[in-house]
Design a binder for these strands. Structure first.
Lengths: 340, 340
DNA sequence: TTGTACGCGTTATCAG
DNA sequence: CTGATAACGCGTACAA
């Protein structure tokens, strides 16, 4: 018995609530309360507890706490990619807002496929997060079932649908495509080159654009499809491919500002003046778009706001507040600058 | 008693190991083994378990598992910022490697101050992560004590020191500064403008550069200091400020490629040809650097590799492997391209 | 190969 | 306001 104690001590077992209780001469339950709901404990008792916490170097064990209380104070966030300028601000905003609300963020890369997302989310749920943020609205049936079954708040982001799993913060990619199409029509830009990434949301924007353009007859479009993530290099290469077609272009429409920046660079390299000889349109209003030379005409979406609202929705709902508008369309704006 | 059971059922309580055991007609312990160490269970028993798992929709509870086993399968990662191109690739690499090794990533924004990092890490430890990744090597004494006390593997990244807390993957900022200084000397670029962010690692690079330059006499340097994160816009503005000094510059040295890109843009806007009239140097070799026009002369560091090695070190150590080289200097290379 | 007993560290609940 | 007791769901250690 005695040797056991000694070995335990030498193993430097992390102090527990029990240890703090012993040192402070209180029960572990009182210590727990002093830490979590100090207003329900006499101030001087709280002080005694705090003193003992310092003395022991106690650090709460949220695994145990979460198990007992069924609240993990964890929010799981699934994104297709982390090193993608499009999502980085959103993730940062989620993280900031969550930590202000006392939550931690479990960040998972779900990729762009149904399969991986489904597996990832199943794995995620084993952490018993209090809430989940999912990128996009297209999920496998199993995913939906699993998530509904888990019975925790979910926010889908970066897209729009009248029928979200639970809550949603995003915008309509179709409408953005439509707006771009309208813009092209208005400007009389009919010989179109597209530099487009493969993901589903980009595809929706493309569809919206085509739908609009086809109202005025069949548009002439040449397209280069590229894998994610979009880079300046891919933008240049793709523009190069388009130019090598030896066809005249009025405009290059790109699925991200990064690609647009590359396309502009390549155009100028080929002696084309932007926008006089060739217009270029991007998407995202990334931080360089406004200051690029020429400044990039693009579609602005408030990536930061998406994250902030998503986190706020979750935290509010978990705080028991009533969510009157679980669907938040944060909209977008076509920002006409120099490049088109 | 009976009503309790019913209420529990209607409350749709998540199925537990016990439930799976009941359905499969086995003990919960066997189910646990079938799930975690299937090789120690008869194949047909495993099959029965899997069947029951499907039937019940069981999802393991890692809070309970972690509490019992003292292994959370969680790695906490603290970075100053998420939406910072410098760290994004590293984070992505950590995430990828960790998930391949069966770990999840708790991502925390620690900011650039000691205080916040210390608090963050204390909060982190309450999740009982199996390991921690910290950005940088300068930590508060309390942080070190807390971390050492937690007795878990730690990897510090993005910097170099002979005395890490535990393990380390990074490179020497001083040496990079030295290399840049040497480059300037070799090229005869003596009228220097600096566009520099405020963070500590950038300061180290600056110091290294100055030390080298001073070996050849007192260099003439004008500097614009900017807050993080670095943006193209800040690069342009800073260059503008420098130009407004009405002094002649041979070179603009920037603490990141993003700033360099902006500086180049602003220089060209002022009718200066890069590098003929003015050289520009960046840092990071971000994905646009090589394809910028002119291509940016910069210092390449393998941000991806940092993340991959950091995660591997942790996972290896946690797997009980012996780590012979806990300090990994991944080095850097000065990439001379068009801008300088 | 499978099962039993117990403990992990905390919180909910109810009693004082 | 404080304390005793019983979960929470799982894995360790040992027994069968």
């Amino acid at each position: 018995m005695k040797s056991e104690k000694i070995s335990r001590n030498t193993a430097a077992r992390a102090p527990t609530l029990e240890d703090v209780a012993r040192v402070s001469g209180l029960s572990s339950m009182t210590v727990s309360r002093a830490l979590n709901t100090p207003q329900r404990v006499r101030p001087d008792t709280v002080a005694r507890v705090m003193e003992a916490v310092r003395a022991t170097g106690y650090i709460p064990n949220m695994l145990a706490g979460g198990l007992a209380s069924k609240r993990s104070k964890l929010i799981a966030v699934a994104v297709p990619q982390i090193n993608n300028s499009m999502f980085a601000d959103t993730i940062q905003a989620i993280s900031d807002e969550l930590s202000a609300r006392g939550y931690h963020m479990l960040l998972c890369v779900a990729g762009y496929t149904h399969e991986s997302e489904t597996e990832i989310v199943a794995a995620i749920l084993s952490r018993r997060p209090d809430g989940v943020v999912l990128t996009g609205i297209h999920h496998s049936p199993e995913l939906k079932k699993t998530l509904l079954n888990a019975n925790i708040p979910v926010v889908e982001i970066w897209d729009l649908t009248p029928t979200p799993l639970d809550m949603l913060v995003g915008f309509s990619h179709e409408k953005i495509g439509d707006a771009i199409g309208q813009f092209l029509l208005t400007k009389g830009l009919s010989r179109i080159g597209m530099i487009w990434t493969e993901d589903r949301r980009a595809a929706q924007r493309k569809q919206g654009m085509l739908d609009r353009l086809r109202q005025q007859g069949q548009p002439r479009i040449d397209e280069v499809v590229i894998p994610l993530p979009a880079t300046l290099s891919l933008g240049r290469q793709s523009a190069q491919k388009l130019f090598s077609l030896k066809r005249e272009f009025d405009v290059l429409v790109c699925s991200s500002d990064t690609l647009a920046q590359g396309a502009i660079m390549e155009a100028e390299y080929h002696g084309l003046r932007v926008p006089d000889d060739l217009a270029v349109i991007g998407f995202g209003d990334l931080d360089f778009a406004a200051d690029n030379k020429p400044a990039i005409t693009t579609v602005r979406v408030d990536r930061w706001q998406i994250g902030k609202e998503a986190a706020t929705l979750l935290a509010d709902k978990l705080a028991g507040e009533n969510i009157d508008t679980p669907i938040r369309d944060i909209g977008f704006s076509l920002v006409e600058r120099e490049s088109a």
